[in-house]
Amino acid sequence: MPESISRKEVKHVASLAKLALSDEEELMYTDQLAAILDHARDIMALDTAKFAPTAHPLELNNVFRSDVEKASLDRDEVLSQAPASQDGRFVVPRILGEAP
């Protein structure tokens, strides 16, 4: 049986999540993720033809709120939590690419 996840895939996922993993961590997460994927594979082996797909574990739908305004947060208080701010806005490091 082929490995359910390769170390290369773990590296890729970590880089997408902006996580810097050490070699040991990479190995550890590869093992842990493989165990989870193996479990999913076991479940996939079951015959589920009789069941409709579930989008959410709760048997609930259409949970709405009405279109009514609520007070927003105080800007100064919010910006005081940020590492840096300027002209009422959050300062973030120079962005290399355009928005995806």
């Binding site: 709120r65 009514v68 305004e69 927003s72 800007r75 919010v78 002209d87 009422g88 806005r89 959050f90």
Partner: peptide, 14 residues
């Protein structure tokens, strides 16, 4: 419930 409006002061509807 933050307001949906154009042209407000930055970060006042958050």
């Amino acid at each position: 419930g933050c307001m949906n409006a154009f042209g407000q002061e930055p970060n006042t509807s958050i």
